[in-house]
Design a protein around this nucleic acid. Structure first.
Lengths: 261, 261
DNA sequence: AGCCTCAACTCCTAAAGAGGACTTGAGGAC
DNA sequence: GTCCTCAAGTCCTCTTTAGGAGTTGAGGCT
């Protein structure tokens, strides 16, 4: 086994069994090099392994530190309730006071939204998912949701609607109407669409550099990529959202009721 | 910006826009070094970035290759149906023929199970989750599920039951009874437990080296860590499972029915 | 007190070089 | 034809050396 792997294993053990507590600074690379009788690049190789596993954090000019766990944001599939508490009611209160700050971002409770609308034509993937011809007109909404106290958003969302289905309510084509009062379900009801169920598909992967930048993800973290499809009562996809969530501070909670036997 | 970052960006672009197709071999490191006018270590640094992003794959002695996407296994929360089709019915057929191969692994359809049972005492975390005193007796079941055609399992599961709740059906304490005929829900019904719902909490992170080994995960992949809790109709946790899924070949699908408005 | 400078510490980028280990295919021995 | 050997290609590990860049605190200046 390579020297850097043995050293990494040694440090990993110390971190796991609590000898090196979260937040602790590791000895300097030159120190470790001397201690293990190896060159600095070899030590750095070992530290890189630990960083990629999410065990340590490198801070240029300061040192290497045992990473602290972050307390994740909980996202539930019983989201109606969640959105209602966190977003809609405060929003409706806000509406009464007449405050508006779209465009540059809208602060509701302790959440900040940034939304942008544009028109898009269905590509191959979206056409297939919606079951519509390629090139059909879609409304594309991209938004970021962020806690006011934090600098990075906790969700990157791009959402698509079939334009012709929602065109009769112009408010749905207007970014100033974001976030939607009453939520997706009630907004879509305004154009006669009744939702039946939501399907969420997800998997995990390392972030792209762009995502790492935007979500402020350190090395050694993952993202959850999620595709959410809302179906109407005729079993047709009405809204499709692509969501990227930071793995180090998101916990998803799904509750599935069981049929009794 | 550092030279290795520019080079990585350059290659990343080529991969994304399809100039370098999945499966293609990249030029040798010495070639790239000459091509970019940089030393080999600098090139290797760039390639490491791409590997950590999951874009390329290194093969010792052969070369660097653009990684191919894997087609993921779909796991749904409507799992009754899934398990029924894939596991239970074939299992019941098998039971009739009298074949048994527990212990060393049990092949049903094209799935292979490995299960091990042991007794455990509730530690702090599990006691809290179950709402029982620390030190209470639990049944611990660990199992691996694998497709017969593949060498690595697609799930690492450790599952806990409160021993006193299931003790009256000795079959539930016996690894030879694995996987459970009729599934969890019907097995628990045999000791008078009626399940009400399942809660699944999940997040994503890089794999530990042990997980990478066992799941045969290359660098540049993530795992999904999932905690599944089954509640009975008295709202008490009955079974708690800790699941680790390989991010590069698992897709989770959750369906949430909406209440009509 | 407040501010500035600077030295000392940290990690980061880059190079060149030596040897090792894995993979493959060509060529020869049988 | 089959098998073996071997060379050439690949990436991997480790060292030494050099300079750059971010962070912090001590000390002096104002």
């Amino acid at each position: 086994m390579a020297a850097y792997e043995r050293i990494a294993g040694d440090l990993r053990r110390s971190i796991r069994d609590g000898q090196l507590k979260p937040g602790t600074q590791l000895p300097a690379e030159t120190q470790l090099a001397e201690q293990y009788g190896r060159s600095v690049p070899t030590i750095r190789e070992a530290l890189r392994l630990l960083r990629d596993e999410g065990l340590i954090e490198k801070q240029h000019g300061k040192g290497n530190f045992v990473r602290k766990a972050r307390t994740p944001v909980l996202r539930t599939n019983d989201r109606h309730q969640w959105e209602k508490d966190r977003v809609r009611e405060p929003l409706e209160q806000r509406a009464e006071t007449g405050a508006t700050e779209h465009d540059t971002g809208l602060t509701v409770n302790d959440l900040v939204f940034h939304a942008a609308y544009s028109e898009a034509k269905a590509g191959e993937e979206l056409a297939g998912l919606f079951g519509i011809p390629e090139g059909a007109a879609l409304v594309e909404r991209t938004y970021r949701t962020r806690y006011a106290a934090e600098r990075a958003p906790f969700a990157l969302v791009t959402s698509y609607l079939i334009r012709d289905l929602v065109a009769e309510n112009p408010a749905l084509l207007d970014a100033d109407n974001e976030p939607w009062p009453g939520g997706t379900q009630s907004q879509l009801a305004s154009v006669g669409i009744e939702l039946d169920r939501i399907e969420e598909r997800l998997f995990a992967r390392p972030p792209t550099p762009e995502e790492a930048e935007e979500l402020d993800l350190p090395a050694g973290t993952s993202v959850i990529q999620l595709r959410k499809t809302s179906y109407d009562t005729d079993n047709r996809p009405v809204e499709i959202s692509f969501v990227v969530l930071p793995g180090d501070r998101t916990e998803l909670l799904f509750t599935t009721p069981l049929e009794r036997w």
